[in-house]
């Protein structure tokens, strides 16, 4: 894998996905250490360019970068020149001029990470941390990792993605990643919450959760937003919950070993009942935990100087790779 940027899951070959998951294993191990920190990205500078509020994704990236000993900076839109009318391109070039190795971009508009990557050429690595309704590739990677961790494999599983697929960058990236790894994906939503044209997508579609629920190995619930009612997409949250909410009654229809996932933040009582969210089959907290290790793997692959050691087809000795330099305590290096 010799990628400059991580923009879309579709840019990753199956081997790339598998390599990232193996590398994530190594970083998950680092995260379990007493001092969960390695010097892999010491001297590298990563900036968070977040044009959209995001606590979880940003903290997760921040934690990942710190565990790799990278320096980080935050570009905060609310207190920045953006409010003074600076163009997106000028902002990006200004940040680059300060000397950064990676830019992690979150933006409410689809495609912004592509534009940023185009303006920066090969000088800086760009990671898409969510663009509009389009993609959220690190979420898809952590979802694949979590499924593999809990179910042993992604291949051959029947995964149902339930809810507002139309507006979901998580769903678009997950469909690409899950199907690439050999899962069978069903999108389950009222027609108004599906993208207008999905002919050709490698998925099945159902409007009836109860009909497909007993067959699913993974039930992936999407966040249901209140404003969808004012867009006439659903009559009410109450009706949505009645038809598509994962209630305790519905959980009874699930296979014993089936798991429940959610990208967060949850609306307890809407797409998922409070009790279901806390069941052992719910892996939502695992997803958050794995997110840090996955993002360590992504940042390491894009920015790490030892990347050549993980290229090619040779089996990956991730542990040797990571333990070679001794873990350091922050501030202890001169």
């Amino acid at each position: 894998m010799a990628h400059q940027h991580l923009l879309s899951v579709s840019d990753l070959a199956v081997e790339d996905l598998e390599q990232l998951l193996r590398l994530t294993d190594a970083f998950a191990e680092v995260s379990r250490r007493q001092i969960p920190k390695v010097p892999a990205l010491r001297g590298k500078n990563v900036v968070w360019l977040f044009y959209e509020d995001s606590t979880r994704t940003r903290l997760s990236f921040e934690q990942a970068a710190k565990r790799l000993s990278a320096d980080t900076m935050t570009f905060s839109v609310s207190s920045s020149s953006v409010k003074k009318g600076e163009s997106l391109r000028d902002t990006v070039l200004t940040i680059e001029a300060m000397g950064v190795d990676g830019i992690v971009v979150r933006h409410g508009s689809a495609g912004v990470p592509w534009q940023v990557a185009r303006w920066l050429g090969d000088r800086v690595s760009v990671v898409n941390a969510g663009d509009g309704w389009h993609e959220h590739p690190t979420q898809a990677l952590l979802d694949c990792y979590t499924i593999r961790d809990r179910c042993g494999t992604v291949a051959g599983l029947r995964i149902g993605i339930v809810g507002d697929v139309k507006h979901s960058r998580v769903a678009r990236s997950d469909v690409l990643a899950f199907t690439a790894l050999g899962a069978e994906v069903t999108l389950i939503a009222p027609p108004t919450l599906l993208p207008s044209n999905i002919e050709g997508w490698p998925v099945r579609v159902s409007h009836d959760l109860d009909a497909v629920l007993p067959d699913l190995d993974v039930v992936y619930l999407l966040r249901m937003q209140r404003e969808r009612m004012t867009e006439h997409l659903i009559p009410s949250l109450r009706e949505y919950t009645a038809r598509y909410g994962l209630t305790e009654r519905r959980v009874d229809a699930m296979r014993d070993d089936a798991i429940v996932m959610h990208p967060g933040p949850m609306n307890r009582g809407v797409e998922i009942s409070a009790e279901v969210a806390d069941l052992p089959r719910s892996v939502i907290i695992d997803q958050v935990r794995n997110g840090v290790a996955v993002r360590m793997a992504v940042l390491y692959l894009l920015l790490g100087s030892g990347v050549d050691r993980v290229l090619g087809t040779a089996p990956l000795d991730a542990d040797a790779l990571l333990t070679a330099p001794e873990p350091v305590v922050e501030g202890a290096v001169g």
Binding site: D131, W133, E135
Partner: peptide
């Protein structure tokens, strides 16, 4: 245009 590309690209059509 609302169609296969807007659906894929996540751009409102």
């Amino acid at each position: 245009h609302e169609g296969e590309w807007s659906s894929k690209l996540g751009i409102p059509g």
